Amino acid sequence: MIPFLNLQALNQRFEDEFQEVLRRVLSSGWYIHGEECGAFEAEFAAYCGVQHAVGVGNGLDALVLILRALLETGRLQPDDEVLVPGNTFIASALAVSACGLRVRLVEPELSRFNLDPQAVEAAIGERTRVILAVHLYGRMADMPALAEIAQRHGLLLLEDAAQAHGARLGARRAGAWGLAAGFSLFPGKPLGALGDGGVVTTDNAELAAVIRSLQNYGSPIKYQHERKGGNSRLDELQAAFLRIKLRYLDADNQARHDIARRYAKGLDRRLSLPELPTEGEVHAWHLYVVRSEHRDALQQRLLKAGVQTLIHYPTPIHRQAAYRELGGLSLPATERLSEQVLSLPIYPGLSAQQVDHVIDACNDFAAIEPNSSVREH
C-alpha cells in the first residue's frame, strides 16, 4: 500500500538531529518560552521576510489570536464581517466565530481552488471589515488582486497560511502579504512539528505584542495581567524540532514540486489536474488535488490498486451542523469541489516508481470511465 502520507519516514530522516536537541532541551531544564522558541520565532520570521513571529499552540489559535488582537486594539468590533473561502477547512471559519465575528463565505476560482477576487468584490457589504485569504493546498491566493481590493475598500487583509509554508509569489513568501498570517505546524503540514503547534507572522509590532500577551494569560510580565488572555504556547521541544525541519523546508517543497510535475506529465487529462505554478511562483504542494465527476469510484479503484487517498473536504462549511445557520446558502463552485476533489500522495521520499504506480492506477480508471472528465459550468 502506498500511504497517503508517511510521517514516520519523513521524520526518521532527522532522528539523529532530533535526539541531539532532545538532550539539549532536557538538560536545559527550560521547557516553555525559552531559547529554542525564541530562536525558532526569529528564524521563521526571517524565512518569511517579516519582523515578528509568535509561536502558539496550533493553527486555529494562530487565527483566533490575530482576530482577538484586532478586537483588543479596536481595529475590529464585535459582529464585524470576515470574508472566508467557502471551500476551506472549517478552522478558518471557526476562528472567526470564536471571536464573535460574522462569517461570510465566498466562492473560489475553480482553476486555483483559492478565493475568486471578483467574488470577493461582489461580497463586500456594510459590515465587511476583513478578507481572510486562505492559501489552500499550498498555493498562494491572488494576493496582489486581494490587496488592491482591500486597500480600495479600507479592509484588513489576513492570511490563513496553514498549508503554505514556503510558498511565494515573486520575492514575497506566504505570511508576508497581509497585516498578519496564521500558520499551522500540525505534523502533516509542509513544516510540521511532532505534535501540535502554530505560529503568527506580522510586520506590526503592536499586533505582535498584543498577541504575545493574549497567548500567555494576558500577561506581558509574570503575574501582571493586562488582558483576559489564554494559554497557547509553542513548547521548547517542538520549537527545537521545527528549527531543524525549517532548514530543509525549501528542499522538501522542491521534492513535492518534482512529484507534482511528474503527475502533471503522466496523468490522463480526462481527470482535471491542478495548475502548475506560473513563473516566479512557488507552490508548497501541501496537497495534490485532482477532480473527477466519479471521484468516489476513482478513490475506490485506487484503494484496490494499493494507493491511499483522502478527500479535502467532503462536506463544505455551510453544510456542516456547526453552521446550520448558513444551511440555506447556495455556493455552487464550493459544492462542486466538495463532490469532485481527491488528494493523491505527494511528499518527500515518495519514489518515482510509487508515483508512476499512482499515475497508472488513475489512468486505468480514466480509460474505463470515458465520462470521468470534469465539466465546467
Rank of each mutant, 00 (worst) to 15 (best):
G29L: 03
I221W: 10
R104S: 14
V200T: 02
A180H: 05
G170R: 13
A333Y: 06
T88N: 05
A162G: 15
I2Q: 01
D196S: 10
I211P: 04
Q19A: 15
R291D: 01
Y347V: 12
A145C: 14
S372F: 08
Q320V: 01
K189T: 15
H318W: 05
R233Y: 07
L310I: 15
E148L: 09
G49C: 03
I66Q: 09
S184P: 10
L22A: 04
D364W: 01
A208L: 04
L246T: 09
S27M: 05
I2K: 00
G125V: 08
S272V: 00
A208S: 12
Q118H: 11
G55F: 08
A91P: 00
F18M: 11
A9L: 13
L105K: 13
M143S: 04
R212T: 03
A123V: 09
A174S: 14
E81K: 08
F365Q: 02
Q354V: 04
R13V: 06
G175Q: 03
H153F: 15
E43I: 00
I66L: 03
Q215T: 14
Q320G: 00
T334Y: 11
G59Y: 07
R375K: 14
R172N: 09
P345A: 09
P78W: 10
R295T: 02
A333C: 02
Q163S: 13
L350N: 03
D116R: 13
N6D: 15
V282Y: 01
N363Y: 07
G218E: 10
K222T: 13
E275W: 02
T202V: 06
P345G: 12
L350D: 09
D268S: 14
R104I: 02
G86R: 12
L271G: 10
E293M: 05
D80L: 12
Q163E: 13
A297P: 07
D160H: 10
H257M: 02
P187G: 02
N253G: 01
A305D: 15
I211D: 00
A171G: 05
S351R: 01
N363F: 10
L67E: 09
Q353V: 13
N204E: 15
L342C: 07
A42W: 08
T88D: 11
L76E: 07
C362G: 04
G266D: 02
A255F: 07
E281W: 02
Q299R: 13
L71R: 14
V50T: 15
R173F: 10
A164F: 09
L249P: 02
A167Y: 11
Q77V: 07
R269I: 03
G230M: 09
E81T: 15
E81N: 04
A251C: 00
E279L: 08
L276S: 06
L10I: 11
A150K: 11
V120G: 05
A162R: 11
S27H: 11
V25L: 09
W30A: 00
I66A: 03
H257F: 04
G178W: 04
A240D: 06
G188V: 06
Q254G: 00
D80A: 15
H153T: 06
V103W: 06
E15W: 05
C48E: 09
D142G: 01
I359L: 03
A162I: 06
F113H: 12
R319T: 08
L249G: 04
F186W: 10
S213H: 01
N216M: 01
R295A: 04
Q215F: 06
E275D: 13
D196W: 01
L337N: 08
A98Q: 12
F183V: 09
L94Y: 02
V290K: 05
L271E: 03
G195F: 06
I346M: 11
V84G: 07
